[in-house]
Amino acid sequence: MTISRETAINVTLALILLAMPFLALQLGKPFYVTLATRMAILGLAAVGLNLALGLGGLVSFGHAAFFGVGGYAAGILASHAFAGQPLNLGLFALPGTNQMLVVWSVAVLAGGLLAAAIGVISLRTSGVYFIMITLAFAQMTYYFAISWPAYGGEDGLSITIRNVVPGINTLIPINYFLVCYALLLTALLIFALIRGSRFGAALQASRQNKLRVASIGIAPFRIGLVAFIISGMITALSGALYADLNRFVSPSMLSWHMSGELIIIVVLGGVGRLWGPVAGAMLFVVFEFVLGGLTERWQFFLGLALLAVVLFARGGLVGFLAGRMRHG
C-alpha cells in the first residue's frame, strides 16, 4: 500500500499534537499541556467550520455563535448544578449537571438548533451577503449574552469545578487533553466520512456549481443547510470543551473576533483539507503564544502570515506541504 504525502503529513501532525503535552510534562512545563489542549479545541472548532467553508464553500463569519452557545451550555448547566437549582425552560425543567457527556449533548443540540435557524435564513443568500448575514446573527447572540444578567452579562460566567467524565479525572490536565484529543479525532473521522459520502459529493459539487447541481435534481439549499447544522454542532461541542478548559464563559466567545479567528485558522491550515484546521490551530496557538509574548501586536504578524498564505500557498500549510488537493 502506498501512503499519500498528505496522509503522511496528517499522521505527523497527529503525533506532534499528541506528543506535545507528554513532552511538556517531561520537561516540567505543565503549562504547555494547556496550550496543546487549546490547539485541540480550536482545531475541533475549525473542523466544524471547515465542513461548511471547505466542503460547502459557505463562508460563515458567524461560527462564534455556535462556539459560544456550546460554551454557555456548559457554563449554564454547571452553574445550575452548583447552585442545585433546576433550569426552567418554560415547558419543562432541566436539572443542572456537571456531567460532560450530558453537557456535550446539550451543547451539540443547541448548536444544531441555532445553526438550523441561522442557516434557514442565511442560505437564501450567497457570497458577501452570506458572510454579512452570518456575522449579523452571531453579533445578535453576542449582544444577547451581554444583556442577560442572569448568566453574568458582560462579566461572563465561571465554572467553579471542571465538569466530569465518568472514570476520568478531568482535573488532571493531561487527562483533559486526551479527552479533547479523542473528540478531535472523532470529528475528523466524521469529516472524512462525510467528505467521501454521497452527501459529501453533493455538498462539494454545490460549492463548485450550485445551479448545475440543482439542474440534476439535487437541492443545494437542503444539502447546504444540513452541512451547516452539522458544522454548527461540531463547533458547539468545541465551545463546551473550551469553557471547561478555562472554567469560564464570556460573551467574547460569541464575538466576531472569534469567528474571524476560526476562519484564519482554517485558511492558515488549508481550506477543505482534512487536517488543515488542526494544522491551522497549532500554528495559531504558537503564534499567539510566541509572538504574543514578544509583542502586543502579534496579530499584525498573524495578518502577514495570512497574507503570505493567501498569496503564495493557496492550500494553506497542508496544501503547501502536500500539494494540490485531488478529488479522484
Binding site: 459520502s197 454521497r198 459529493a201 439535487i218
Partner: peptide, 14 residues
C-alpha cells in the same frame, strides 16, 4: 446518485 434519490447518505464512501 440524484436519480437514485439518495444524497442524504453520510458515511458510505462513494
Amino acid at each position: 446518485q440524484s436519480r437514485q434519490g439518495s444524497s442524504f447518505r453520510f458515511f458510505r464512501p462513494v
